[in-house]
């Protein structure tokens, strides 16, 4: 359990770092490290597929996309964040942590829940046979994403 808690704390720490760092490149790398930690947490929850997916896609692909964007927008990258935002953050964060802790401790043992239907088979079977419709949705989203990028980066050939 201690390892889990340490990993979760690391995840939160790196996420906070990703937000606090002024330098966008450092922020993106912190985000990737946070994803990596999340992937390890998933592995420890006996969810190897999503762990691998998180590490390869979120820590890999999305970070690459972020870094490409940062590189393409380099010269305008220095945006002065407001001083107040970084001042207030630790205060609000600690208040939220305390609140979160007490709410969750108050909820211990108080949440009623039904037993889920036990599941059989492998991950592939569940994905393909139980959540089949989700795959149709995934196809739709991928279409939407690809077409969106095509539309946004199209050459502005105004065919008059």
């Amino acid at each position: 359990m201690i390892v889990e808690i340490a990993l979760l704390c690391g995840l939160v720490l790196f996420s906070v770092a990703a937000i606090i760092f002024r330098d966008l490149l450092k922020a993106a790398i912190c985000l990737a490290v946070a994803s990596l930690l999340l992937g390890i947490i998933f592995f420890r929850m006996k969810a190897p597929y999503i762990g691998a997916f998180e590490i390869s896609v979120v820590a890999g692909l999305i970070t690459v996309l972020f870094i490409t964007t940062i590189a393409l927008t380099k010269t305008g990258g220095d945006v002065r964040e407001s001083k107040a935002a970084s001042w207030i953050f630790p205060l609000v964060f600690v208040v939220f942590l305390v609140l979160d802790f007490f709410v969750m401790r108050g909820l211990i043992g108080k949440i009623p829940a039904l037993e889920a239907t036990p599941e059989q088979g492998t991950f592939g079977e569940v994905l393909w046979k139980i959540r089949t419709f989700d795959l149709v949705g995934q196809i739709g989203v991928i279409f939407a994403g690809v077409l969106a990028v095509l539309a946004l980066f199209r050459k502005r050939d105004k065919d008059e």
Binding site: K46, A47, Y49, L65, T122, F123, V126, I130, G145
Partner: peptide, 21 residues
């Protein structure tokens, strides 16, 4: 955990599309 993984995979695919856009 298997259903949850299936949901999370779909979630990440959607996330990638949104990020790209």
């Amino acid at each position: 955990i298997l259903v949850a993984q299936a949901l999370a995979v779909t979630f990440i695919v959607i996330e990638v599309s949104v990020v790209a856009t």
